[in-house]
Every structure is written in structure tokens, then in C-alpha cells.
Design a protein around this nucleic acid. Structure first.
Length: 797
RNA sequence: GCGGGCGUGGCGGAAUGGCAGACGCGCUAGUCUUAGGAACUAGUGGCAACACCGUGCAGGUUCAAAUCCUGUCGCCCGCACCA
């Protein structure tokens, strides 16, 4: 018995399209619910089976919330700028605009075939000038607030994409996108000062309902550390500033290390200048990857002719240059305490430098003693005898009093490199004038449209392809009117996605990025689901932009998303990541064609724990199809009935409770299992009445919307199912009258008994004792444990 | 190295201190069928066993442990010389 899913699904998708029934209302009195999934990058490969996992889960949430009376916004759009499209365009000699248009068309067809209840009237596209007008506008606000600045700096350069990458886009020393080598290159780049927001991005996590691993990852990425900044005098007469989280170990500092890029190297008269410069150049030639590759073996050169003076004991100590110290963190210089830092220890061993134990408790002949919790200070002047924590406080007080140091907080987070030397991105609305310097484009000139060209390939020189379009580049200065040149770099892919959820609130507004009323009504996003891979990229960037917009008074909430969850990856049948090269890719179109959208949706939810990775199993899909066939089969055993039958009343109440709760907790797999168990019971009983079918269809509807609407209509329930309401349950009718309890003797199961659910502890105990009286004979009862509804355990000797 | 997570039947997975294996796949038998890689019914952790054994391994706490604690092995993810 198999129903005609193709006809049924087409019919309902057409009805939903025609009636626009899933469009959210901006002027509603109803309570709002904003459910959001990450909008896709419309690649040429089409939809991946990973996409529907997220989309189906939140579609279930959205559909359930609508049935519960909410005004639901569940939108969809296209994150369409970016390198993948551009690289495809170059390879196939098609303009990226055409590629994007085709890919979107295909994605949209695929999404529609799965029956998602997206509000298509709010569809957005980041490459639409009416959209990126506001991306550019936000950039101008960042610039006005001093949060966008241009800086000559060493950046990550992908040798294949011929383009700068953000720190977050470099994974394991290679390009996140193409896997090619990333080298350091000095370029002038637009930077966004996300570091100004580091503390707020960290502390505001507290009030948010994000899953722990997202919070942990963002916290680690921001990398807050507290310590002290200390000034060391040098024999050259000037000062060396260092950062340390262990100021308590200052008496143990036996040498200093500065990063190869440290500016003092150029300033100082060094006896071995050639050697030092050679070391620096060797370090510069290394890519980040090589530099971390050799992390095990530390190298360095002593700076001859200059020494640092330890301010607490006036000892002269040598200064080294080494690439294990990073110019980009802290002050680019450290005091080395080999006795209490493993890296310094390793370096000191190699270069035969002295170690002074200042915290007792370890054996510094063997290894560095880094424990802060147990040690006591020794060899440390006025700190001797204190605990590490006491010493930290005392030394900072001392440094402040002497004017040679202060308390200091540092972050691992770096500013966001915002320029890309590529064509397919938003033009940065800035103009460079010889006289005035960088000038922002007036807001009325937005959008600054991306000029159309067929010559969009990246250049070997590292210049943006836009620089070849001299007609476009040459302009006049917005300040003085003199001839000037446009910025030719474009924005990174992360720009358009950093605020897209705002545009959904009011997508056709041509005066503002969205109206205040709309933003006030819809924000924050109530539930946002997306991939873990975006935790330190998109998710962090968009929180940053949102906070800036909040400070500008553009958005009414300090945080964009109230709740964040993340789905596990769907792996190939062989348990490996799905990829073309592994040949284990499943195309959603094939599944929809063979089994239908409802089965596909159900299977994606039934595959396992939503948060965990799960391998695709073609053989299991038919289980979901069989289940839906059995649901359709209910029509043939349907009886009249205004209320639940006595036989099924408890089961229905229990299942309503469970399915409702499971949906809210994203436990779609067990919700489906409960519906399967219930239908098994219905077939056991041999029939279902109309009241029961109604409830059953409503519970299943968020998962399998097409079939349930169809059966609703066939059963003659009137109107559309999606206009009805989610069933409620009677808490008193969720428990069974009789329950089976287990009788244990010393924790071993000896008997089982069906008892009344209402039975008291004493009654249960008596029943249990009777049941195992033979075993108890001649023994002394030591302890009796009774857990009503579960078990009785008697401990006897 | 640091941080996060995981380890349960032939397979995907349930169970978060209280009956291990819900639900599904697969498998076995049966029914119907010209046929079955369809559907339906029953069974299905191991074992000859109602005893006993069983949640990576070794200990521990508890009347009771897949679940909590300690150690250990293996796998996955993130960060990676952040001073």
C-alpha cells in the first residue's frame, strides 16, 4: 500500500504558494516568533543533504509555533557573493552574476520541493544592489565610528585564490576554501576593530541561550587573559614593554625574548645586527604553517650589545629574538621565566640559560613548574612566603606604585581583515584623495554598484580586478572635488551575512535597512540554528556588527540571537564526510523523487541525535516511507468518534505531551519514534476514530506537512490543517492506571508485578515481600527502597 | 599541548542514578502472491538455558551505575608557541 506522494506533494506546495499562508505579518497583534536558519551559499553543486537537516528542524519548530498561535517569521535568502561562485565563473567563462542567478534558481526549486514553510515574500539576495546598499551603509557607520581603518600589515595570502584571508579563514595553515598554501604578505587592508568589542562579545554570552559548545568556542576564540604589563629598562637607555599573566614570577625572569618583527631591533645598535636581521628575514619567509610546524624546536638569536634590567632586582639579563614570541599578541615581547613556563624552559635548556625557582613545589631540574594553585613563593624578595595569588596582587601593587607596570587584560581575538582582492563582492564605498586621504562616499550615492565587466579574473600582483576598470576607479573626492580614486578591494563574503536577519524583518524598505517598528517587533531572533563551522566566523562577526548597530541606535537589542543550536554533520554511508572526491554524496533530489519530500524530511530527523554527526543510510529511508504509508492506511480503519476512545486515551495524551516537548528540545528523532509507537498501538487496537486521527495528523504535520494536509482534507475535518491548533493534553491522563514494577533483592531482579499506579509505598513493599518470600526466608532485612512506579529493592542478609 | 565531545546489539540509535537495547534498518519464520529486492503477521543482545553474562578497559561511590568519581585506551571536532 503506497500513496501517490508526487501528486499529493505537488498539490499542497501549489496551494501554499498560491495562498501565501506562511507569510509573516508585520502588523500582527499575535505574539511573534522568529525562527532562523543560515541562508545558503548557492553553489553549483546544488543542495547538500546537510542543508535540509537544519531547515527541516526549524521548519518543524516554525510549523508547530504557528499551530500554537504565534505569528512566525521563517525566512530564506541567498548568501551569494563569494569566491566559490567566482572561481566557477572563471573556470567556465560565465559571468558570476549569471552563475549566481542559475544557482539560486536551482536551490529555490530544491527547497520548494521539500515543502519548507519559508516566507518567500521576504526572500533576499546579498548580491542585489538594493540589499548591498545597506551592507555598504553599515560599513560607512563603522568607518564613522572609527571601527574601520586602513592599515599596512602582514596578512594571510592565499596563493591560489590570490586573495587576502581573515585569520578565521586560515585553517591549519592553509586556505579554508581551497586548501592551498597561505603565506604572509604585507598589504594595505581595511580592518574592522572587532577587538574593541571583545569584552562585550564575551560577557554578553552569559545572558544567551546558546548551546555550551558554541559559548566555549567563542570564549576560547576571544581568549581573554588577565595579567600585567611591565616596563624593563635596557642598557641602551630605552625601555622594553612586556606582557605577562604571571607577574608573580618576576624575580625568576632570567632573560627576555622579543618577536622578530619587534621595532626596537631596528633602533638598537647591535654587535650582531646582520645575524639578527637574517633571523628576522628567515622568520618572515616562513608561512604561518611552517612557523607552527617547527613549534617543537625553538630557535633564536641573542641580541649582543644590549641587555634588559630586571626592575625588581636590578640584574642585567640578555635579550633574545625568537619567533616563538608573536608580534601580534600582547606587546610582542616577554620576560622569560624558564623555571615556571614550559616554553621558556625549553628555550633555556637549548641555549643554556639560568633558571631561578621562585615558586616552590616542583622539581625544576626536570621540568617547568607551572601550577598556580599550590605553590609558595621563594627567592622573591618581599614576595617570598606568599601564595601565587597573593604574590600576583602584591607585585602589581608594587609595579603601579613604582610606575613601572600596570594590570592588563589581553585578548587573542584580532581585528577583522575586511578587504578582498576579488571581483565578486560588495565594493567598499571609499575614495582616496591625494589631499584629503580616505573619504567615505556620501550615503545618498549608495548603492555603489559593482561595475559589470568580463575581465574579472584575479591579478598576480595582488591588485583587485576592479583596479583594471579605470573609468570606474577614477572619480572625484567627495570632500574637495579633486580627482580621486575608488577603493578597488571588495568586502569578504562574511559582510552580507553579518546583518541579513535584520533585512528579513522589512526586506523591501528603501529608506532604511529595516524600519524601527519592524525591528522592535521581530528582534531578537528567537531561535537560530546553524553549523558549528560558523561559530568563530559568521556568528561572531554578526554579533559584532549587531552591537555596533545597537550603539548607533539602529537596532533595539544588544544581541541578535537569543538561542543558538547547531546540527551535526550528515556523513556519507561510509562514515566519512560527504564530498565529491570521496564519491559518497547523496543528492536530495534523488531522495525526493524516489520517496517524496515527507519521507525525506522524516528520515533526516529520524537519523539520530540532531546535534551529533550521523552517517547516511539509504536502507533506513524506507522505514520512514513505510511509516507514512501506514499513516495513510489509517483512512481505511477510520471510525466516527468525537473524543478519544477509552483504549487509546492515555496513549494519545502521553504522545501529545512527548511530541510537543521533544520538538521544543530538538529531539525530533524520539518524537518520531513516539508517533511510530502510537501508530503501532492503533493498529494493534484495530481502529482509529476521527478525534484521534485529528490529533495524530496535527502531531505529525510539522514533520510530514503534505500528507497530513491531504488526509485532513480527505477526512473532511474542514479548512486547512495549518489553520488549526496544536493539540493539548490532560496531565492527569498521561500516566497509566497500572504499571509494572520490578522487585529486586540486593539489586538483582527477582520478580515483576503489575500494580496500580496509585499504590502507596507500604502497599508496594508488601506486594514485593510476598512475591519474593521464598528468597527472603531466613534472612534479615537490612534496607528497603521503594521507588513508586519503578521498583522495590530489598536488601537482606 | 590546551579546550569541547563521544565510545551501548549485525547497523542507525533510545534510556542522564531505578526494568539496558524504545523506534527504525537488517535478519528469521509465516501469510498473501505467477513472482518478490512489495505488503502484512510474529520473533530477534549473547548463551542449550526462566540460571548466568552484557553499555571500550580497570578500579571506586551507591541498596541500585550506560549514567556519578578516579585512572586508562581509542575515536571525532575546535584552537594551537596567546607568555
Amino acid at each position: 500500500m503506497s500513496y501517490d506522494f508526487k501528486t499529493v506533494e505537488k498539490k499542497w506546495q501549489d496551494i501554499w504558494d498560491k495562498t501565501g499562508c506562511f507569510a509573516a505579518q508585520n502588523d500582527s497583534d499575535k505574539e511573534k516568533y522568529y525562527a532562523l536558519v543560515e541562508f545558503p551559499y548557492p553553489s553549483g553543486q546544488g543542495l547538500h543533504v546537510g542543508h535540509p537537516r537544519s531547515y527541516t528542524a526549524l521548519d518543524i519548530i516554525a510549523r508547530k509555533k504557528r499551530l500554537c498561535g504565534y505569528n512566525v517569521l521563517y525566512p530564506m535568502g541567498w548568501d551569494a557573493f563569494g569566491l566559490t561562485t567566482e572561481n566557477f565563473a572563471i573556470k567556465n567563462h560565465i559571468h558570476p552574476e549569471t552563475v549566481t542567478k542559475n544557482n539560486i534558481q536551482n536551490f529555490k526549486r530544491q527547497l520548494k520541493s521539500l515543502g519548507f514553510s519559508f516566507d518567500w515574500s521576504r526572500e533576499i539576495n546579498t548580491t542585489d544592489p538594493q540589499y548591498y546598499k545597506w551592507t555598504q551603509w553599515i560599513f560607512l557607520q563603522l568607518y564613522k565610528k572609527g571601527l574601520a581603518y586602513k592599515k599596512e600589515m602582514a596578512v594571510n595570502w592565499c596563493t591560489s585564490c590570490k586573495c587576502v584571508l581573515a585569520n578565521e579563514e586560515v585553517v591549519g595553515g592553509v586556505c579554508e576554501r581551497c586548501g592551498s598554501e597561505v603565506v604572509r604578505k604585507v598589504k594595505s587592508q581595511w580592518m574592522l576593530k572587532i577587538t574593541d568589542y571583545a569584552d562585550r562579545l564575551l560577557s554578553d554570552l552569559d545572558g544567551l541561550d546558546f548551546i555550551d559548545r558554541v559559548k566555549t568556542q567563542q570564549t576560547n576564540w576571544i581568549g581573554k587573559s588577565e595579567g600585567a604589563q611591565v616596563t624593563f629598562k635596557t642598557t641602551a637607555g630605552d625601555e622594553l614593554l612586556i606582557y605577562t599573566t604571571r607577574p608573580d614570577t618576576l624575580f625568576g625572569a632570567t632573560y627576555m625574548v622579543i618577536a622578530p618583527e619587534h621595532p626596537l631591533i631596528d633602533k638598537w645598535e647591535l654587535e650582531n645586527k646582520d645575524e639578527v636581521i637574517a633571523y628576522r628575514e628567515a622568520a618572515a619567509r616562513k608561512s604561518d604553517f611552517e612557523r607552527t610546524e617547527v613549534a617543537k624546536d625553538k630557535t633564536g638569536v641573542e641580541l649582543k650589545g644590549v641587555k634588559a634590567i630586571n626592575p625588581v632586582n636590578n640584574t642585567e639579563i640578555p635579550i633574545f629574538v625568537s619567533d616563538y614570541v608573536l608580534i601580534s599578541y600582547g606587546t610582542g615581547a616577554i620576560m622569560a621565566v624558564p623555571a615556571h613556563d614550559t616554553r621558556d624552559y625549553e628555550f633555556a635548556e637549548k641555549y643554556n640559560l639560568p633558571k631561578i625557582e621562585v615558586v616552590a613545589g616542583g622539581d625544576i631540574e626536570k621540568e617547568a613548574f607551572t601550577d598556580c594553585a599550590t605553590g609558595v613563593m621563594v627567592n622573591s624578595g618581599f614576595l617570598t612566603g606568599m601564595t601565587v595569588e597573593e604574590a600576583k596582587k602584591a607585585i602589581i601593587d608594587y609595579l603601579v606604585k613604582e610606575g613601572i607596570g600596570e594590570r592588563k587584560t589581553n585578548y587573542k581575538l584580532r581585528d577583522w581583515v575586511f578587504s578582498r582582492q576579488r571581483y565578486w563582492g560588495e565594493p567598499i564605498p571609499m575614495v582616496y584623495c591625494e589631499k584629503c586621504g580616505w573619504a567615505p562616499l556620501p550615503e545618498r550615492e549608495l548603492p555603489l554598484k559593482l561595475p559589470y565587466t568580463d575581465n574579472f579574473e584575479p591579478t598576480d600582483t595582488g591588485e583587485s580586478p576592479l583596479s583594471k576598470l579605470t573609468d570606474w576607479v577614477n572619480t572625484t573626492c567627495p570632500h574637495c572635488g579633486a580627482p580621486a580614486k575608488r577603493e578597488t578591494d571588495t568586502m569578504p563574503q562574511w559582510a552580507g551575512s553579518s546583518w541579513y536577519f535584520l533585512r528579513y524583518c522589512d526586506p523591501h524598505n528603501d529608506k532604511q535597512l529595516a524600519s524601527q517598528e519592524a525591528l522592535k517587533y521581530w528582534l531578537p531572533v528567537d531561535w537560530y540554528n546553524g553549523g558549528m563551522e560558523h561559530t568563530t566566523l559568521h556568528l561572531l562577526y554578526s554579533r559584532f556588527w549587531h552591537k555596533v548597530l545597537y550603539d548607533c541606535g539602529v537596532v533595539p537589542t544588544p544581541e541578535p540571537y537569543q538561542k543558538r543550536t547547531s546540527h551535526g554533520m550528515i556523513l556519507g554511508e561510509n562514515g566519512e564526510k560527504m564530498s565529491k572526491s570521496r564519491g559518497n554524496v547523496v543528492n536530495p533530489d534523488d531522495i525526493v523523487d524516489e520517496f517524496g519530500a515527507d519521507t525525506m524530511r522524516l528520515y533526516e530527523m529520524f537519523i539520530g541525535d540532531f546535534e551529533k554527526a550521523a552517517p547516511w543510510q539509504s536502507s533506513s529511508i524506507k522505514g520512514c516511507k513505510r511509516f507514512l504509508d501506514r499513516v495513510e492506511g489509517l483512512m481505511y480503519i477510520l471510525k466516527d468518534g468525537e473524543s478519544y476512545s477509552a483504549q487509546l486515551e492515555k496513549s494519545f495524551n502521553k504522545t501529545v505531551k512527548k511530541v510537543g516537548e521533544d520538538i521544543e528540545n530538538l529531539k525530533m528523532n524520539t518524537a518520531i519514534a513516539a508517533l511510530m509507537a502510537l501508530i503501532n498501538e492503533i493498529y494493534q487496537v484495530g481502529g482509529i476514530n476521527k478525534a484521534e486521527l485529528k490529533t495524530y495528523l496535527l502531531l505529525l504535520n510539522p514533520f510530514a506537512p503534505h500528507l497530513t494536509e491531504e488526509l485532513w482534507e480527505r477526512a473532511g475535518f474542514g479548512g486547512y490543517l495549518h489553520e488549526s491548533s496544536f493539540p493539548t493534553f490532560d496531565p492527569d491522563k498521561c500516566g497509566d492506571d497500572t504499571v509494572e514494577i520490578v522487585v529486586q533483592l540486593c539489586g538483582k531482579i527477582k520478580a515483576r508485578a503489575k500494580v496500580s499506579a496509585e499504590a502507596s509505598k507500604d502497599e508496594l513493599l508488601q506486594i514485593a515481600k510476598n512475591l519474593i518470600s521464598d528468597d527472603l526466608a531466613g534472612k534479615t532485612v537490612i534496607k528497603e527502597i521503594v521507588v513508586p512506579g519503578k521498583l522495590v529493592n530489598i536488601v537482606a542478609k
